[in-house]
């Protein structure tokens, strides 16, 4: 097996991921806080210690997810595209390597949510008859290039399902 794929994701992917994880974690931490408020004003369903420990655990998890995971994820992610296949490597703890023959690609598109847009990033999604793969957080320009490149190769190598 040749070594890991060469192309990396955009460096600002880390920032974008941090923002989205932070938003998610804030929502998650709001839940015990709301319960806390609820029990403060009359309700007495939960012990405050339980709530406190859950909140602390959540905060620690949130810190890990926000500060370390995006960095590790970025370092693991790499991809390669040539006229024969798409080669992806990803994972945080479990490392996954995916090989997609280019002639199996049915369609490829770029997607962009509000967070990715503010960092000028976009995801590339590759679909085959059986699976869907995603190269996340590329530069808008690179994403468009990658999409067009894959689509071109796929058209050339086209074969029936």
């Amino acid at each position: 097996m040749r070594s890991s794929p060469k192309s990396k994701l955009s460096k600002s992917a880390i920032k974008a991921w941090r923002v989205s994880t932070t938003l998610f974690m804030v929502v998650l931490i709001l839940v015990p806080l709301l319960i806390w408020l609820f029990s403060f004003f009359g309700g007495d369903a939960f012990s405050p210690w339980l709530l406190l420990s859950i909140t602390i655990i959540l905060i620690i998890m949130a810190a890990l997810c926000i500060f370390f995971i995006p960095e590790i994820r970025w370092r693991r992610w790499s991809y390669d595209i040539d006229q024969h296949e798409i080669d992806l490597q990803s994972g945080i703890f479990i490392i996954t390597r995916t090989l997609v023959p280019i002639k199996r690609v049915q369609h490829v598109d770029t997607r962009q949510g509000p967070i990715l847009r503010s960092y000028e990033l976009a995801d590339v999604t590759i679909s085959t008859a059986a699976t869907t793969h995603r190269i996340p957080a590329l530069n808008e320009k690179t994403a468009d290039e990658v999409r067009d490149q894959i689509s071109k190769f796929a058209r050339l190598a086209k074969e029936d399902v």
Binding site: G91, I94, R97, L99, P101, R104, A129, A130
Partner: peptide, 27 residues
């Protein structure tokens, strides 16, 4: 020539033992 994707996976425990999971997808 019928495979849609080939995926190999390795978790930290497998890494210590030099093992991988191997999966192929077909339509």
């Amino acid at each position: 020539y019928r495979t849609q994707a080939t995926i190999i996976k390795q978790n930290p425990f497998q890494r210590r033992l030099n093992l991988h999971d191997f999966t192929v997808h077909v339509a």
